[in-house]
Design a protein around this nucleic acid. Structure first.
Lengths: 113, 113
DNA sequence: ATTAAATATGCCTTTACAGTTATATTCCAT
DNA sequence: ATGGAATATAACTGTAAAGGCATATTTAAT
């Protein structure tokens, strides 16, 4: 029943649903890294890393902090809050439906007597 | 720092990262539906609906309950628990890193005196 | 000003997947 | 057993996105 979750969209999930990008996100768990560091650790070409970072950035998963030559990428917290809320709302809906089923069964029991 | 989250994988997110499949998942919030009902409500062809349901099923997002001719699809709760846990773990890591930063700043302050 | 390092971007190829159409399968009703 | 309804599947086409390569851009150092 819960309606649309604000901030939740398909393309954001799509940004995460790619192995290299997921690996980047996992790498950034521990703090910000430059493009070069990311490319090295994941054995990606530099342009390849930059492209994936652009997808993540366009979808609000990461943010950039330019520092001279380098660009430090780090995770934003908002998308993770949104996803958590979204996933929770489904669990709530499923629980609620189970509860309603319990009520219904109870009702049938009562009628029997 | 949190390691791999059990049950969390890229292809599961990929299953959700498609507009029609996300629409199916949102439809199923309110309970189980047959292929035909899903196809009608979302104005999908029957084969198209079946294919998307197969992707969702292969990734554990939905389960099927055959009933005579019809096949009722409904959401499984596990993937939503996994995703919630995954998203939460990122928020925890980010908070922890902020805390560490606070400690560090505090340390610098102390040294000054 | 020139050079070098770090990163972004444009072009190209290839691959993966959405979507369509036709057909096969399964189950019930007669 | 036959016919029809609901669903799955296979073959095909088109398109979007991943990946590679060359090049442009930005910044610091000399």
């Amino acid at each position: 029943m819960s309606g649309k979750i604000p901030g939740m969209n398909v393309s954001m999930l799509g940004a995460l649903a790619e192995p290299n990008r997921m690996a980047i996100v996992e790498l950034l768990r521990n703090g910000s890294l430059t493009v070069g560091e990311i490319a090295n650790r994941l054995e990606l070409s530099q342009p390849h890393a930059s492209k994936h970072l652009k997808v993540l950035s366009d979808n609000g998963i990461v943010e950039v902090k330019p520092e001279a030559n380098r660009r430090y990428y780090k995770l934003r917290s908002e998308p993770f809050r949104v996803i958590e809320y979204w996933a929770t709302s489904f669990q709530k809906d499923m629980e609620r439906r189970l509860d309603n089923l319990d009520d219904y069964v109870q009702e049938l029991q009562n009628k029997k007597q």
